[in-house]
Write a protein that binds this DNA or RNA. Structure first.
Lengths: 116, 116
DNA sequence: CGTTTTTGTTTCGGAACCGTATCATTGAAG
DNA sequence: CTTCAATGATACGGTTCCGAAACAAAAACG
């Protein structure tokens, strides 16, 4: 039990971070896209389409399309698995790492400003 | 400075909450929609299209469309302002209040589980 | 009155995304 | 070699959303 939040703090934190992302002109990610992006960046590789679909409880086309979009945003990249060429491995990018890092900073900053 | 988070905790929290929303079959809101919804529920009324557009730094049609969608989801409702009939007042709904309350519980639960 | 300003909605072409179903490629099994 | 299974992408019809522009309704102003 390391991080303790009250209801008003939890919701206010989410509001302030969301507002910061919107007004900051960042990518307008959905919950699904955010879940995919952060899973790729926080969980140990390898990440496959099937694995991500299973982790999120959605169908494979959902992942394929999200990777299309976030690939165009340069947030992730796709590569064939040379050991089993049926697999596609989802990997991090420099731009994606910068985006995630900056996003973490936004969360921390807004959390620090929350009223007690 | 009431809530202190380290970078890995901040990002992990966002991942776990996003995953919980996706796997839980909840609405797949975008940052914009979340910012609108939480602003309506956390900031004092009245909320107008113009005010929300200004708060988020987006154009009015963006708000109109988001209200269309979230209205269909029963998360918010629209009413004419009888004092100034040019205004549309965005109000909370029972379903929306339940959704927001449950969402806050998800954040708190995931925050409590974060490794120190 | 008529004109101007304010507010919110609608329209336009184009892009993203949905769920379901199907397809292409690859690997495994007989 | 020939099925069969697994993986990911694609096709389909439909919805949502985009920014920019035009629009309708209501209020304010003269």
């Amino acid at each position: 039990m390391s991080v303790v939040l009250r209801p008003s703090q939890a919701l206010r934190l989410w509001q302030l971070v969301s507002l910061a992302e919107v007004t900051g002109g960042a990518h307008d990610l959905s919950f699904r896209q955010a879940a995919i992006l952060l899973t790729v960046y926080l969980d140990p590789p390898p990440h496959t389409v099937r694995g991500l679909a299973s982790r999120l409880g959605v169908t494979k086309p959902v992942i394929t399309r999200a990777l299309d979009t976030m690939g165009a945003m340069k947030l992730v990249s796709r590569h064939r698995d040379e050991n089993d060429r049926r697999n596609v491995l989802v990997r991090r990018t420099v731009e994606g790492a910068l985006y995630v890092e900056r996003f973490g900073d936004v969360i921390i900053a807004r959390a620090a400003e929350l009223p007690a």
